[in-house]
Write a protein that binds this DNA or RNA. Structure first.
Length: 578
RNA sequence: GCGCUCUUAGCUCAACUGGAUUAGAGUACCAGAUUUCGACUCUGGGGGUUGGGGGUUCGAGUCCUCCAGAGCGCACCA
């Protein structure tokens, strides 16, 4: 179904045949991998373009013109190629016979399975960890971006043959959780005594904890009032975590994100994983007790030298060694995180992908170092950073302040604009660019709002299909070959690029490509539609010419199929009517 | 002070991971078409030293280096 990979394989086979005849040394398969076949930037160059001559020339130390001419003469024999041309720096441009595009469309429309993608993953395991927000508050806009990015990426990777596990790491241990529990206890007291308590620095003053306080009151009555922190902590911590996590899970479900696994940090700490990593690292002589240097700059006034258990992460490219134990001999977060990564590796025996927020960029080198150390570089950890989201309403910037507990929650955004808008908008930028998310704009029924624009194209397709009694079994290649308008053929060519787009999204872990493609496809379809206004003979349905109508409707149908496939990747269901 | 990530048209962003005489879209602006199979849809126009300098090579927005600006992070928190 992927025209580009089909012909790339043919070209490679031809190269191997020539290589045998002329005894070229192509044992270095990396060189063959560098050969690509893609649609040229400039349409006038043809349909396909390959860099084969240049790649081979550099490997064989030959003149690229010489190789290009040899290749060209062989490629010209292929029937499907109308024109094969060798041009300046070393490209070979190919024009396909129009019947190839007709056949392509015919196959697409008549196959029951829709699009099929290349099996890049070959069933390999891939663990995608994302969101992993601390259960100390509700999810907000930034989390939404990571959630959509990770979830969509996971879908894309599944489509190309990876076995993907969607995972959320719950940081349900440590100081922040103690602060959370203490905050909830204050809300509990507040609920009983009907008076306000002051939240000291480090506690969570957000109103969202009021219901937790009430719940504790409902369960325990006044029995906890006089208990010390140590006594009430184990009693109410499970309640607090469960409630916070439930809210998070609900928001995720509403956003269309279904995690496969929630892993608890507490459980990791209780397991033997930490001892295990200690043993592993010790065996590799990567542990020592030492004193870290004071970081330069004036941000830390209370710095004092402390001997701590350190991991030699510098050896793996980190800027400094990192502490595994705190001064009081308890584990650092980093230590438990290494243990967690070991846990993931042991469970899936595959590679890991972490989706992180922009504020965690500084963490990457140390955790990657650790993964490389414990697996002897056998497992790869890929980190993708999602940059921040700026919220605004009709141009007015909405400020977020987490400290005061005053920020726009994901739940609010979901209520305001719905899941589909969020999912699409969060992927209309590369992951490393900031996103401007304007509540007003994303609800507009116009081109300003890409999800509307794409869905509108789909609705138009459906409208045509409805008014035409379209049936697949009326189609044959003869009718399809009536499609001769340049815009029609161009649209088929654009359709043919869909699997390439999806596969590239998978290869480079860039889900935004799907959105950009869908916008492009919608645009070309709208354009073709309007051609029918200028010239009535170009309308999709012509009562006096059933053959061409059938062919054009087949084209419309395949546009619909493709938009649906694309939106499906984003977990968005297009609506037939708007 | 150090590290990471960014900087592309007035604005918001792409650019198939090093490819093509002319770096593409949208928006805004100007000029038009259409009102239907479906309604803010389409066509055309001007707008650029890809933050700046240097380097690597057949070829650089993309890689290296220096400089400037923005964001994030900087023992023991998570």
């Amino acid at each position: 179904m992927n025209i580009y990979s089909k012909y790339l394989n043919e070209i490679k086979n031809i190269i191997f045949t020539i290589a045998e005849e002329l005894s070229w040394d192509l044992k270095n398969s990396k060189i063959i991998k560098k050969i690509v076949l893609e649609p040229p930037k400039n349409q006038s160059f043809g349909d396909l373009s390959t860099n084969a001559a240049m790649v081979l020339a550099s490997q064989l130390k030959f003149n690229s013109i010489e190789i290009g001419e040899i290749l060209c003469s062989e490629l010209k024999i292929i029937n499907d190629f109308d024109e094969v041309e060798f041009v300046k720096p070393g490209f070979i441009n190919i024009k396909l016979n129009t019947k190839i595009w007709h056949t392509f469309l015919f196959n697409l429309v008549t196959s029951n399975n829709g699009w099929i993608y290349e099996n890049l993953g070959q069933g390999k395991f891939l663990n995608v960890e994302f969101v992993s927000a601390n259960p100390t508050g509700p999810l907000h806009a930034g989390h939404a971006r990571g959630a959509v990015f990770g979830d969509t990426l996971a879908s894309i990777l599944s489509l190309v043959g990876y076995k993907v596990l969607r995972e959320y790491y719950v940081n349900d241990a440590g100081n922040q959780i103690e602060a959370l529990v203490e905050s909830c206890f204050l809300r509990y007291l507040e609920n009983i005594n009907k008076r306000e308590y002051s939240f000291s620095n480090g506690l969570y003053p957000g109103n969202y904890l009021k219901k937790v306080g009430k719940k504790i009151n409902d369960l325990y009555g006044k029995r906890l009032i006089d208990l010390s922190f140590d006594k009430y902590f184990p009693l109410i911590k499970p309640i607090v975590i469960e409630m916070m996590l439930n809210d998070i899970k609900n928001d995720l479900v509403k956003l269309g994100v279904e995690m496969d696994v929630f892993t608890s940090e507490t459980k990791i700490l209780e397991s033997n994983r930490l001892d295990k990593i200690l043993k592993i690292l010790n065996k590799k002589k990567l542990l020592y007790t030492g004193i870290l240097e004071k970081p330069k700059g004036n941000s830390n006034n209370d710095w004092e030298p402390r001997p701590q258990l350190l991991f030699n992460s510098k050896k793996f490219g980190d800027d400094t060694d990192r502490a595994l134990k705190k001064a009081d001999n308890s584990w650092t977060y980093f230590a438990s995180d290494i243990a967690y990564h070991l846990d993931k590796i042991e469970r899936t025996s595959g590679n890991l992908i972490n989706i992180l927020g922009a504020d965690h960029g500084g963490y990457i080198s140390r955790i990657s170092s650790a993964v490389n150390a414990i697996t002897d570089n056998k497992c790869q950890l890929i980190n993708k950073i999602c940059s921040i989201v700026h919220l605004s309403d009709n141009g007015q910037i909405i400020k977020m302040s987490k400290r005061s507990g005053d920020f726009v929650t994901l739940s609010e955004i979901l209520n305001k604009v719905g899941k589909d808008v969020i999912r699409f908008m969060m992927l209309t930028r590369r992951n490393d660019q900031t996103i401007e998310f304007d509540f007003h704009k994303v609800k507009e029924q116009s081109k300003d709002n890409p999800i509307f624009y794409v869905n509108y194209a789909y609705a138009r397709c459906k409208s045509i299909l409805n008014s035409s009694n379209f049936k697949n079994n009326k189609i044959d290649l003869d009718k399809i070959s009536k499609l001769t308008e340049k815009k029609e053929i161009d649209l088929i060519k654009l359709l043919s690029q869909w699997p390439r787009v999806l596969e590239a999204s998978a290869k480079y872990l860039e889900p935004h490509r799907v959105c950009f493609y869908l916008i492009d496809l919608a645009s070309q379809f709208h354009s073709l539609w309007n051609k029918g206004n200028e010239d009535k003979n170009l309308r999709f349905i012509l009562k006096e010419d059933k053959k061409i109508s059938t062919a054009r409707i087949a084209l419309v149908n395949s546009v619909a199929i493709t938009i649906e496939s694309g939106l499906n990747v984003l977990s968005i269901k297009p609506t037939n009517k708007m």
